[in-house]
Amino acid sequence: MTAAVLFENVSRHFGAVRAVDAVDLAVAEGEFFAMLGPSGSGKTTCLRLMAGFEQPTHGHIEIFGETAEGVPPYRRNVNTVFQDYALFPHLSILDNVAYGLMVKGVVREERRKAAEDALAMVKLPGYGARRPGQLSGGQRQRVALARALVNKPKVLLLDEPLGALDLKLREQMQEELKTLQKSLGITFVFVTHDQGEALSMADRIAVFNDGKIQQLGTPEDVYKRPKTRFVADFVGSSNILQPEFVTQLGAGQQLASLRPEAIGLNSKKEGQLAVSGVVLSRSFLGASNRVTVNVGGTKLHVMSPASSPVPEEGSNVTLSFAPADLHLMETTP
């Protein structure tokens, strides 16, 4: 099967800055693909390379098997939901949504009908006569989505689409986007710096840092088996264990990560590894408690459910975890 988007050794340099540095990736058709990373990591530049706003300095890009470099954005059947939505302030909502069809020469009646259907799909029926300035942030986000989807793109690009929304709305939109993607079957490529968002929505995640992909895999892969220290740190929080410490556990001289929620407090089970230490501090986080334990000079964070008892500061505790949860990583970087 041809990939929806294929990058072969793609680089984009801005002067001396390598915004995207020799990236290979293949987005499968019908996939919900997330590009995750801190700002300046190259994920947005990758998205802009797919949309056609940037051209690669080196390398080759294909969209559904067709060469994309040198093709202007307006000749790509790819649409974008912009971070600031970029709704046209001088047009009504309906005209905004119908814009893509208008410039393609679809007749008036037909494009109005299509635009109204698209608005209904994003749960904004009857909003067509309003202006972008009269809508809330969440509503504008939906209009931006309808404006892109009405063109039936082969790939939909979303640039931090939920970044400007508040928490409640964001969670609701995550659900809706996922449902919409499943029902339409369109390939979604999604840029975010929010690891929770990427984990909950994506089929696969590419974690970016310094213009390179650090790891590419399913959310479970990336979370449970981070390849590098950067991924372990950036995706969720992690205890990074130095090689010397790992050796003491009998697991070879390598850097390892251990998720705080994988550690049990005073509850060692059969076949688990165990270390003992002294509680340094604890804080209540609502659904859980975070306990910091000093194990022979190494600080370990433990996430324990709020329902289980919390040891006092200064008390001795036994920490236990399954050997499989101790994930060995490449030492550099």
């Binding site: 559904f64 067709e66 093709v71 039936k152 082969k154």
Partner: peptide, 10 residues
């Protein structure tokens, strides 16, 4: 929904 079928990518 519309006459545009979106068959080709380019």
């Amino acid at each position: 929904m519309s006459a545009i079928t979106g068959e080709q990518a380019i």
